[in-house]
Design a protein around this nucleic acid. Structure first.
Lengths: 348, 348
DNA sequence: CACGCGTTTGTGAGCGCTAACAATCCAGCT
DNA sequence: AGCTGGATTGTTAGCGCTCACAAACGCGTG
């Protein structure tokens, strides 16, 4: 009943051993499911553990086994839908593998920030790190950092010799572009993401490849910074082109590199008196939850974040446990979600 | 150059001591900034540390100090904008205090899930936990769990005896409602969030209080589940009422409990041929990044997630280090963001 | 009934660190 | 010179656990 406040240490393995009338080693064996323990003994020990509310001390275990069973995650800009979802997928996968996940969120992925993040995680003895670093410069910095443990990138591209997992961005972009061409559009305009981002590059590359394969000269690329505002600006320019209709290729279809910018594009078109999809079809990328409720509902590309999380953790654990050596790169398949914004003759 | 693969243990404090020609204790003193170390000795040791690339072993430290300097975060539905942002704020604040943050993401906050999460974190020896558990039932379950370390809730309400930090949801709702009444609307309709959520309750309460203080009988409450779709349904009903205009209070202003549902409401109104804000003003809550680009830009309430993170970590650390005992509850002030969706005579 | 062998349990050492205490050094005084 | 006391450094003993090894047990066999 009495709660002797401070300083009452939690029970140790020795306490359990005494309580159960066995040696501490037997307790350890029960806890780690060693086969050679008599059922009756196991039972006695288990009961003693419960009676005392005993928990193994992870620090002592880590000290002797040299395994902290902790993974680090470095993520830039976790408030965005993509990284946040990946984080969840990652954490669940790690938990299933028996690892704890510790996160460091960076607002911007400067080299110094990354170095500090690695140091912070290293100080706690993480066994490996998953880095959600979608910008080329981050991955570059990361590769140069030479961390004291395996590092797996997510959306980090495969040029550098870090193992990684990505959505097949290029395939996603191809799907969208092919879908628009198949709907009868003569060409597809593109609002790209910011320069340094690997996702931008891959999406633009996929779009360009499909156009070229179909003998269409790609129109010049407009660029945004993922934000609705930048999409809005690009949309205003496209609206102008759609109305003027001289010189340049006619604007009847736009592939926007993410859903948030697509929202801005849609607004600009609407304000310019242009109906979507009747006059201009618009498609995005990411399938954020709001995309289904955009005016009009947005055709976009969905990523399987749970799969990305699972595969990155799998890859990381393979490296930690010495099963993998090379800088392998895995791709996860995207899925095209068709909605009203590209439907031939939908409403607005 | 040679990388003697496995089994080369990282240097220990003893290695550094040998290298520097001092005792390991002196190394320890240098590392923990003990004042009584000669400057020259400190210098020698520091250099030896760098030469060897030495890092203190956190497990050994944790074992002897009984401090893991690790905090846990339990978050339900981290892919949502709010929780994801809180997570970032939390992590940054913790890092500044010298703690590592380990996250457990739960898809749904069932009692069992919460128990497992607490166990998972306890197994790694976290010193305290911040739980982002916005549903009443979660907090209830959490309070009954009786974790072996301090637990601080975020958006967990203050009825139960767990310390916590919340945005002042009620104040936010009051701000919105007062803003709408001040704009000349005779009453304000309300699309509430789902039942079990504390945020829903507080937002509804604030809305109701303001109406009653102004002698307005609150119209019946429509309820959604935070999703754009549910907002869309509520919006259709409101559109019907706005057009029919009989029996019930006229619909000229709607306070929607979050921005995503507001998106659905806006779409339903638009489809019903109702202009916003000219015929019906709409306001949301959260200020998600997209809100500024809704058709029309949405009046909403912004939360200071960094502040929420900082204050929860502060509160948790106070409990861990024995500075706080009571189940104190802190409130963070919201900010009303006025945009076109409630502007008297804006465009659509 | 002694022997051998697999199963079950116990013993001792040590992981790398910090805390407590002990030893040493050196300046300033008497 | 001898003494005192603060500053500096070293020594020792665990923290709670797992690993390697040793001991004890039990059972079938010749």
């Amino acid at each position: 009943m009495a709660q002797p406040a401070e300083d009452v240490r939690p029970p140790t393995m020795a306490d359990v051993a005494r309580e159960a009338g066995v040696s501490h080693q037997t307790v350890s064996r029960v806890l780690s499911d060693h086969p050679n323990v008599r059922a009756a003994t196991r039972e006695t020990v288990t009961r003693a553990i419960e009676r005392l509310g005993y928990r193994r001390n992870s620090a002592a275990r880590a000290l002797v086994t040299r395994r902290t069973r902790t993974l680090g995650v470095i993520a830039v800009n976790t408030a965005l839908y993509g990284p946040a979802s990946t984080l969840t997928g990652l954490e669940e996968a790690a938990r299933e593998e028996g690892y704890l996940v510790s996160t460091v969120s960076l607002r911007s992925g400067s080299g110094q920030g990354l170095k500090d993040a690695i140091d912070h995680l290293a100080a706690w003895g993480v066994e490996g790190v998953v880095a959600i670093t979608p910008q080329r410069s981050h991955v570059q910095a990361l590769a140069e950092l030479d961390a004291p443990f395996p590092v797996v990138t997510v959306e980090g591209g495969h040029r550098l010799d870090l193992p990684g997992v990505s959505l097949d961005q290029e395939l996603g972009a191809r799907m969208v572009t092919e879908h628009l061409l198949a709907a009868g559009h003569g060409t597809v305009w593109h609002v790209a993401g910011p320069e340094d981002w690997l996702e931008s590059e891959a999406r633009t590359a996929g779009w360009r490849a499909v156009l070229e394969e179909n003998g269409v000269r790609p129109p010049r690329v407009l660029t945004g910074d993922w934000s609705p505002l930048s999409g809005y600006r690009a949309g205003q320019e496209l609206a102008g082109l759609a109305l003027a209709r001289r010189g340049e290729t006619p604007v009847t279809a736009v592939f926007v590199a993410n859903d948030q910018m697509a929202l801005g594009v849609l607004r600009a078109l609407r304000e310019g008196g242009i109906r979507t999809p009747a006059q201009v079809a618009v498609a995005g990328f990411d399938d954020i939850p709001e995309a289904e409720y955009f005016p009009p509902p947005l055709t976009t590309v969905r990523q399987d974040f749970a799969a990305i999380g699972r595969r990155s953790i799998g890859l990381l654990v393979d490296h930690i446990e010495g099963r993998a050596r090379k800088a392998e790169h895995l791709l996860v398949e995207p899925q095209l979600i068709m909605r009203a914004s590209t439907r031939p003759s939908g409403e607005g």
